[in-house]
Design a protein around this nucleic acid. Structure first.
Lengths: 377, 377
DNA sequence: CTAACGCTTGAATCCTACG
DNA sequence: TCGTAGGATTCAAGCGTTA
């Protein structure tokens, strides 16, 4: 693969060599319209999410959350966002090979509109895939569930696009010989991988982790394929494509992001043929919540728990808490409370009765974990 | 809660007693139109998405579309599905209380269209929540990822719907004192829970697990709330609502499902009051004014308060304000002011000295609250 | 040198009762 | 209805400093 180049104004009908492994500067749709029909194998698109934020948000320690308030994420209405979405999706569809596929990532703010538009334009959905984050930002005000995932849509160009690439065996091998599921666990992009400017500030507000792109490209493309990213940003797609022996084309408007992506990709080392074979990840022991024990029916609300010496008692409640002496809380809090301690492992402290014998509720956790093992947590 | 009843033809403007804890037989929209405005606390909807299955294309009314491959027919069927979706969502929105919330579950076949319609109609999304299945059906042909999840959308009636119920503390306590995330792990409904007919065949093709509904209702409703399920099916919503001390209304067309749901719900045992108590936090505590601490003599005017590190000081005044550096105001205002913040919780920021130790003035608030409790306030 | 501790930060549609 | 003020709210990682 040649060195990454910047193309400011691609002529119409330019040869492939003039745009392969380049960043096209300019508006997404205008730039895509310079590329030939059916020239792209896989598209990865990370469009603006159209977050509709209202006012500042502070953490409990009063520090201010650095919100995504960039101008490129601002739209006047759902209508305006839909028109924008249809325009870039149509441009993508034209350049996609008949057996090509497209990935789009988004959050609940935009992904439903994007998905509906994709169906309307004739894309054929293959999967929706969930990126579960192991370290998402918490919900600071305690008014919602922690927003711990993003959604990706994987689709072929149209319903007849049967010959698309899916490296089923590689995915299965990478997942301990179990079929790769539609929910993937990855950390968000932090640390050394996150691009920073001279002040130590992040260069792009929404840089995606390379591991995510690596799985996408390993699953749905072959070495030598051409990968298009119409919202190139900090160039994660280009960096991973180069490393994995794929070609790329990026489109980006902001010079700041282009500069960062160019130097980033230039320093990427391409893997040789042999190393392009599968990488496998390890699994941590799944964490089980006490609430799921109750929800699973392994302990009914009203059941009395006790410590092994039966000096303390607590009653299971339907919401997954336990109550004792008119107070209530998690198994850990209440275990600590009845003993007058600061902390307690409720799993080993509290016991339930079965066949006339006291057993730690940790036994029930083991049962749930055995059931979860097949879920590839 | 009374025994479950079937209502074949609810009159317009019928009293609540005639439809509470019943199944309304008939078309979803027609039945909902008989219910009063703003009468429902929480809706759980599992709409049909028989869109493009088995090579046959069906419209929502079960009529078959002729040419599967024809792009126009596909467009036509999307339009029909969208119209159906808007109709039942609108009917739901009318009966929902202003501070009510709605849950909708679906897969990639329909959830994007449903989500876009919800936004178009003015629902305000709170979360999308992923149901991860630990035992999903494998992908038999090996051409896609294993479809291992479904997507739920949780939304308030409109953007101003701020007062919705979310039992944050209960969810957190049930999740081992970590806030509940947007990805939930549950097994699919199998075994004894799965309703079967006399031949041993499953009665409903998409019966949802009770554990899923239990978490939904524990998170977003209170005992005594009214839960509506416009696509009642085998009655999981009703069964869980009854068990958890909530009221329900179901709408269903098929007599087969109604029969199964009726006998199922009839055999459900309702939990008692104590097990249904929900974990609450400080937000639910009665408000105590700092002035009443001073009035009660727990802090004398002139006493010096400080932060835990003793970097800031303030003097208690007889009117319930505190003064610092020649300025005065509430404990919150002055706490913010001395730190240079916009906001501050004065109860946890300011400390008083007792027995040579610094204690947060929140301790005194607890004393006052305990006194209020024993006084039966 | 290591462990412990503290500070920072991440695609966020993040309050509500009272006057 | 609107403005104001009370006061509630965070998890996992990375990194630099302290013990």
């Amino acid at each position: 693969m040649s060195v990454v180049r910047l193309v400011n104004d691609l002529p119409q009908a330019a040869p492939q060599s003039s745009w392969l492994d380049t960043i096209l500067k300019g508006d997404c749709v205008a730039a895509l319209n310079r590329l030939p029909d059916h020239s792209i194998d896989v598209i990865f698109a990370d469009p603006p999410y159209n977050l509709q934020l209202d006012g500042d948000l502070h953490r409990p320690d009063q520090s201010k959350v650095d919100a995504v308030d960039d101008h490129w994420d601002q739209f006047d209405s759902f209508q305006a966002y839909d028109a924008f979405t249809r325009a870039w999706l149509l441009a993508c569809r034209r350049v996609l090979k008949p057996n090509g596929t497209i990935w789009v990532i988004g959050s609940y703010h935009n992904i439903f509109r994007v998905g509906a538009a994709m169906q309307d334009l004739g894309f054929w959905m293959l999967n929706d895939v969930i990126w579960r984050k192991n370290n998402p930002m918490p919900n600071f005000r305690g008014r919602r569930f922690q927003n711990a995932h993003e959604t990706m849509i994987w689709a072929s160009r149209d319903q007849k696009g049967k010959g698309y690439t899916f490296n089923y065996e590689a995915m299965k091998a990478a997942n301990d010989d179990l079929q790769m599921r539609s929910d993937w666990l990855f950390p968000i992009c932090t640390g050394a991988e996150r691009l920073k400017d001279e002040n130590g500030d992040k260069i792009h507000p929404t840089q995606k982790p390379e591991a995510l792109l690596a799985r996408i490209l390993m699953a749905s493309s072959k070495p030598g394929d051409i990968i298009l990213d119409p919202f190139f940003g900090s160039g994660t797609t280009g960096a991973v494509a180069k490393r994995l022996g794929r070609h790329f084309v990026g489109v980006e408007r902001e010079q700041k992001y282009i500069d960062a992506a160019m130097s980033r990709i230039a320093s990427v080392e391409e893997l040789g043929g042999a190393e392009l074979k599968v990488m496998t990840g390890k699994r941590a022991e799944p964490r089980v919540a006490f609430g799921s024990i109750v929800e699973a029916g392994l302990l009914k609300p009203g059941v009395v728990l006790s410590d092994v010496r039966q000096r303390h008692a607590a009653i299971v409640r339907a919401d997954g808490t336990v109550s004792s002496n008119g107070d209530a809380g998690s198994i850990h809090r209440m275990g600590a409370k009845v003993q007058g301690f600061d902390a307690c492992n409720g799993w080993t402290f509290w016991h339930y009765e079965e066949d006339g014998k006291l057993k730690p509720i940790d036994e029930l956790r083991k049962q749930v974990r055995d059931g979860m093992a097949s879920a590839g947590v």
